[in-house]
């Protein structure tokens, strides 16, 4: 464990806590893409299938449980909570996310560390996570001004993988034979997808203005 990875995990955790706060405090999920939440639930379920077979550390196991449980709770809340689900922007959240699942699965079958069930699921989760934010970014562009908590949620979610890139650079220089090229390339793509969001988020912070993404 290094400071970049720990900071990345904490930033990821904060993004989930901010989203939970937004939904709990406002009893609304307006501006949140349910499709992105469903994709993230799939990412965690596919990536953490080894939660019961591979024990890495108490920290690792607890964080996996927290990520799976919180994301499933958010999806359930957006689908099943009688108050929250009324505020879901169903007509704006129209990204064809099934294509993202299919493309990630095909790519995982072609490019993986080893042709085993677990490795292919892991690669699938890595590729899917890289594009999981797309429905959310499209929804933000369509929904005009973005409330603060939603903007902070997306910001922290984008920042965490950027910190992981620093972690991979650090591990590359400090650990012999360290190679995470699938996660690294995918992480670079993932972080790059946030580039314009980060730009407009910085502008809104600098000008102390409401965050607004151009349509």
């Amino acid at each position: 464990m290094n400071i970049f990875r720990f900071a990345g995990d904490m930033t990821h955790l904060i993004s989930i806590l901010v989203l939970l706060l937004k939904i709990y405090a406002t009893k609304s999920c307006s501006g949140i893409s349910r499709k992105t939440q469903e994709l993230y639930a799939l990412v965690f379920l596919a990536r953490y299938v080894d939660i019961f077979t591979e024990f890495i550390s108490v920290y690792n196991t607890i964080m996996k449980i927290v990520f799976i449980a919180s994301t499933l709770a958010i999806v359930w809340c957006m689908r099943g909570h009688r108050v929250v689900r009324r505020s879901y922007d169903k007509e704006l959240d129209t990204f064809r996310h099934y294509f993202l699942i299919a493309a990630s699965l095909v790519l995982a079958l072609l490019v993986h560390e080893k042709f085993t069930f677990q490795e292919i699921l892991w690669a699938f989760s890595i590729y899917l996570e890289a594009v999981a934010i797309l429905p959310q970014l499209v929804l933000l562009q369509r929904s005009g001004n973005v409330d603060n908590l939603t903007g902070q949620y997306v910001f922290f979610l984008g920042a965490y993988r950027g910190l992981y890139i620093l972690n991979w650079i650090y591990r590359y220089f400090t650990e012999p034979h360290f190679s995470r090229w699938i996660a690294c390339v995918s992480g670079l793509v993932q972080t790059a997808l946030y580039a314009d969001f980060f730009y407009y988020y910085f502008l809104s912070w600098k000008n102390n203005a409401k965050l607004k993404l151009p349509a």
């Binding site: 591979e54 890495i56 990520f67 992981y164």
Partner: peptide, 10 residues
């Protein structure tokens, strides 16, 4: 290719 390493990252 390289053997599958333990996935110690989240």
């Amino acid at each position: 290719g390289p053997s599958s390493y333990p996935k110690d990252e989240l």
